[in-house]
Each structure stands twice: as C-alpha cells, then as structure tokens.
C-alpha cells in the first residue's frame, strides 16, 4: 500500500476513497420506480383502470345506438354528454373511478410500500445498504405519487382513445353552458387529470403510514383499502356532516368545477389544501414511526 493510489479501488484496499455525489441518491428513486412498474400487480391494477373507460364507452354506445334517449339523469357526471362528444368520456371515466377504483389501486401500492419490503425481508438489506430510513421513506412516497399520476393518466388516456374511436369529437359545452374549443377542452382534461392525481396524495400518505405500522404487506393493503371504504361510507351519512369536510375524499369530485366557465375554485382549493394537510400529518406520522421502528423482519 502506497500513498499514491487515490483512484485505485482495488480489492486490497477496502477503504478506497469514495466521494459520493449527492445525485447518486436519486438512484434509489429510479430503482423504486422500476420496481413499482415492473410488478405484475401494478400492471394488473393499471389494466383494470384502463378497462373502465372501455366498459363505460361501450355501454354508452349500446345505449345510444337505439336512438337518442334524451339523456337519463342517473350515472356519473357528464355521462349524458358522451354521445355528443367523446372528450366527455375522460371526465366521466375519472368521475367513475375516483371514488373507488383509483384510490383502491393507490391503497394497494401505498400499503405495500414499506410493509411489503418488510415481509419479503428486503427491507433489512435496503437499510444496511444503507438506504437511510428518511431517504427510503421519501423515495417510497415519491414512487407512490408517481403511481397516482400514472394511474390517473392511464384512465384519462384510455378514455380519450375510446372516446375518439366511438364518438364524435369537437367543440364542447361547459357546465355553465358556454362553448369552448376542442383544444381548450383537451387542456381542461389534462388539468382535471392532474387535479385528480393530486386528490389521491393525502390518501397515499395515509396508506404509507399504515404501511409503516405492520410487517405484513397484505395486512397493510387491506387496512388501507378498508379505511377508504369506511370513509366513503361515512361521507354518505348526513348526521356526520360536521366531520365530513375533514374526510380526505370529501372534495374529490370538485374537479368537475374545472368545467365551469369561469372556473369555480373554492372546493378545488379546499380539496388541494386538505390533501396537503393529510400528506403533512400522515407523512410526519409515518416518518416518526419508521425512523424509530425496530426492523425485526
């Protein structure tokens, strides 16, 4: 061993000089995204989400094939408009998947984030690598948020494609009755997809927190999805209206306000504020729990 060997990472010198680059930390996020989107489970969830607009589109097509029925009042928002303009299928599909399918998929991915690694035993190897607990948690949360966005976009893009195939496209009428061009309609659709994805951020943080509580991936997924169902039911009970504004799902359907002219922002802002609050509260709780936890699996 001589002094003039700062670059040789030979096996004879276990302590080869390593000057880590802060950017190398992002490698974990890259790997996390790859792993999330390479699981069959993730692909299956996205497949189910992609199928919803297809089903809605075909159902509407068959229904209107008998002749315009004048638009029944029931069903998800905008459904009566689809046969006039395929772009409305995007809004309908998002309105149909947001109460349950989308958050369920997010709940599965978020609930599994830490608990799944724990039950597979891979968590201990990530931590001795050392991934760092805070860094790993942030990476997991970033990956879950990426999944929220991907899931929403899958629904939107699938709906856009089905809508374009089955129905005419063109200028559209907003809820307020004004006409906007097709290009602006597309812009609104994208904006709505982003708002829907952001609506899931609070619930994703809740799922991540649940995931730090248990060593069982399945248990964490079931608990997270169970919480979703419970809150969705409680949100329907009129006697609880004092609590309901604090439920993460309470303002979810406010995204329809983006289709007003002018846009009605109040509930949209409330929704995003509530999501930020949930993310802060449950993100902190997850951090407090995970950084202090004994990893025995």
């Amino acid at each position: 061993m001589s002094r003039a060997e700062p670059e040789t990472a030979g096996s004879g010198t276990p302590e080869a000089a390593r000057t880590p680059n802060p950017l190398w930390s992002l490698g974990l996020l890259r790997g996390e995204l790859l792993i999330t989107f390479r699981r069959w489970r993730t692909l299956a969830l996205l497949g189910v989400l992609a199928a919803v607009p297809v089903l809605v589109g075909i159902a509407v097509k068959i229904e209107t094939g008998d002749g315009p029925s004048g638009g029944g009042g029931e069903g998800p928002a905008f459904i009566s408009q689809i046969s006039n303009n395929g772009l409305f299928l995007v809004f309908t599909a998002l309105a149909a998947t947001l109460p349950f399918f989308l958050p369920m998929a997010v709940g599965v991915v978020a609930g599994d984030a830490i608990a799944g690694e724990s039950s597979a035993g891979t968590l201990r190897y990530l931590l001795v690598a050392p991934a760092g607990r805070t860094r790993l948690l942030l990476t997991k949360y970033a990956a879950v948020m990426a999944f929220c966005l991907a899931a929403t976009l899958v629904v939107a893009v699938s709906a856009l494609a089905v809508g374009a195939l089955l129905f005419p496209l063109g200028d559209l009428t907003t809820i307020s009755g004004t006409r906007i061009g097709y290009a602006e309609g597309l812009g609104r659709a994208l904006l709505i997809a982003l708002v829907v994805a952001a609506s899931l951020v609070g619930f994703a943080a809740l799922g991540l927190f649940v995931s730090t509580l248990t060593g069982s991936g399945i248990g964490a997924m079931a608990t997270t999805v169970g919480l979703l169902i419970t809150v969705q039911i409680l949100d329907q009970i009129p006697q609880l209206d004092a609590l309901q504004p604090y439920f993460f799902s309470h303002y979810w359907l406010s995204f329809a306000d983006l289709m007003r002219e002018p846009v009605y922002w109040d509930d949209l802002v409330r929704n995003l504020g509530l999501q930020a609050l949930y993310a802060a509260v449950f993100g902190s709780a997850a951090w407090a729990r995970f950084t202090a936890k004994d990893i025995t699996a």
Binding site: R18, P20, W24, G27, L28, P130
Partner: peptide, 9 residues
Amino acid sequence: YDEADPTAD
C-alpha cells in the same frame, strides 16, 4: 441493492 447505497458510484 447497490442503488440503495448513496455512496455507490
């Protein structure tokens, strides 16, 4: 596992 190590080039 190597990606998890922030000091790994």
